[in-house]
């Protein structure tokens, strides 16, 4: 099942990139999908049946603009710090704990943290995240967690868990 899903997604991507239904294109696409699927089907994520639930897609559609908004704000923030004459930063590595348990959701949370306001995931150890923060503005553990993970956790839980 996993192998088949991997082959189908590779084939879909191939057809999108070529944007034609020429028999030659489809033939080579199937050929390479078989090779790639055979080699990498093993590491394809488990529980792909979850993706058929329309509610997950709805929350994904809600999540995207929400995420892009924070991404935008992050960029403006970092850009302002960079062109400020004094470069006002207070960097450091902090440790926060997430409530998400799933492998997929934690991966995406880590990626979202990296792409938003001055935070970069250095390592994940179970549910502990080590975050490099460009501008540490509070010493309070709870507020840090809320500021770094709290924004995305509820939506990511609905999408991936």
């Amino acid at each position: 099942m996993k192998w088949l899903m991997c082959m189908l997604s590779v084939l879909g991507l191939w057809l999108l990139l070529f944007w034609s239904l020429d028999p030659w294109v489809i033939g080579t696409g199937v050929f390479f999908a078989l090779i790639v699927g055979g080699l990498l089907g093993e590491i394809y994520p488990d529980g792909i049946a979850k993706a058929l639930d329309p509610r997950r897609w709805f929350f994904l559609l809600v999540f995207l603009p929400y995420f892009l908004w924070y991404c935008m704000r992050a960029n403006v923030d970092v850009a302002l710090r960079v062109i400020h004459p004094d470069v006002p930063i207070r960097p450091g590595i902090v440790k926060v704990r997430t409530t998400l348990a799933g492998e997929m959701s934690r991966t995406f949370l880590a990626n979202c943290i990296t792409l938003t306001p001055g935070t970069l995931t250095v390592d994940i150890d179970g549910q502990d995240f080590y975050i490099h923060w460009l501008n540490i503005d509070t010493d309070d553990e709870a507020r840090r967690t809320a500021e770094i993970c709290g924004r995305f956790e509820p939506l990511l839980r609905r999408i991936f868990e």
Binding site: C71, M72, A74, N75, V78, A79, R81, V82, I83, V87, I89, P91, I93, T114, L115, T116, G118, L120, V122, H132, L134
Partner: peptide
């Protein structure tokens, strides 16, 4: 801005911040 950050920020970790965020979104 990402490139300016790459030059102006102090260490590897801060520079990686500028390089990922600004350059990715840009």
């Amino acid at each position: 801005f990402g490139c300016i950050g790459l030059v102006r920020l102090p260490d590897v970790y801060n520079r990686a911040q500028a390089a990922t965020k600004c350059v990715t979104l840009g």
